[in-house]
């Protein structure tokens, strides 16, 4: 420890730089606009009651409200009643900054909907990728057929093409089919994971042939073998692939940005955050950072709980 102090010094400096934006994001999501502006309040802010000006404005009493409330304040003049109602609105609209920020995050924009879309899109992508890739990987690894080498070369060639790079022609194809602004557009380009095929093929190569022969003896067809015999053996590899795929698509911003324009019902979390930023004014830093925190948290928490698996999954590429 004493001998290594300079190493810790360097590494801790790195930690500060790496953590800084996370610290700021979470901290701002706790603070009131005033505290953010003046840069005070430490990490959690002072959590003093604050008044939501927009909420008060919405409850600004008009003539009818005053007439209705007149029964509650007998013998008072209209302006007194008006003041009393305003005071009520003020107290009803005041809350702790942290609650203000997080409720605003969920009410100003349909954040729950965005999160749900994120789950739907990432889950569909992963399941279709597996349904397409697993049989192909099995055929390439364990079946002898004319053309196998050609198919495998095609897989190797397709590994060279990053889907983001061909976004423009894909967008044109989807636009011609009238599919932009649909879930299909968000999912289709990712349905084929050549990397998944390659990875699963390499994995299946290590599965002993005896296992498959035994299954054939039992009268299983090739299709049944894929799902009943190969799938269970592939669970560890699939788990790593799942993490790889889910992290990539939950965080993806480029592709949703291209195919989803304007239709909020289809926004994925990053798109929702982007829109929030676009129409937010200065006082909305808090709720915006709350939104960012909500979007980033699920993966970070999952990562902290299962670090080994996550690191394995994300660095899968390294197995090539």
């Amino acid at each position: 420890m004493t001998r290594d102090w300079w190493k810790h010094l360097i590494l801790i400096l790195g930690v500060i730089i790496v953590i800084a934006p996370f610290y700021m994001m979470v901290s701002y999501s706790f603070k009131s606009p005033g505290e953010i502006d003046r840069g005070e309040g430490g990490f959690f802010g002072r959590q003093e009651l604050m008044v939501d000006e927009r909420c008060v404005k919405l409850r600004d009493p008009d003539r009818d409200d005053i007439a209705v409330a007149a029964g509650r304040f007998p013998g008072h003049s209209d302006s007194d009643i008006r003041d009393a109602l305003l005071a009520e609105a003020q107290s009803d609209c005041s809350m702790r900054p942290v609650i203000f920020n997080y409720t605003k995050a969920f009410t100003e924009a349909p954040l729950l909907r965005y999160l749900l879309n994120g789950v739907i899109v990432t889950a569909s992508i992963f399941f279709i990728q597996v349904i397409v890739a697993l049989p192909a990987a099995y055929a390439l690894a364990k079946l002898k057929f004319w053309g196998r080498e050609a198919v495998f070369s095609l897989v190797l060639f397709c590994l060279l093409i990053p889907v983001h790079a061909i976004a423009l022609p894909l967008y044109i194809m989807l636009a011609k089919l009238g599919l932009t602004n649909t879930y299909a557009a968000l999912v289709v380009p990712w349905t084929i994971s050549v990397f998944g095929i390659f990875l699963m093929r390499q994995f299946f190569m290590t599965v002993p042939d005896d296992l498959i022969d035994a299954a054939r003896m039992d009268g299983m067809g090739e299709f049944t073998i894929v799902w009943r015999v190969m799938l269970p053996t592939a669970v560890p590899a699939l788990l790593a692939f799942a993490i790889f795929s889910i992290v990539a698509h939950w965080n993806d911003y480029f592709w949703p940005r291209i195919v989803v324009t304007g239709n909020r019902d289809l926004f994925t979390p990053p798109l929702g955050l982007r829109e929030f930023k676009g129409d937010g004014d200065g006082s909305f830093f808090g709720p915006m950072m709350a939104t960012a925190t909500v979007i980033v948290t699920p993966l970070i928490v999952a990562f902290l709980l299962a670090q080994k698996r996550f690191i394995e999954g994300i660095t899968l590429n390294g197995m090539k």
């Binding site: 196998r148 894909l170 084929i192």
Partner: peptide, 25 residues
């Protein structure tokens, strides 16, 4: 049998590779 099964199993992947990756290029 094996050849037929193999093509049936690779067909979806092949078709998608052609439509989603090669055609756009």
């Amino acid at each position: 049998q094996e050849r037929r099964a193999a093509w049936a199993l690779t067909a979806p992947a092949l078709i998608l590779m052609v439509i989603v990756l090669l055609a756009p290029v």
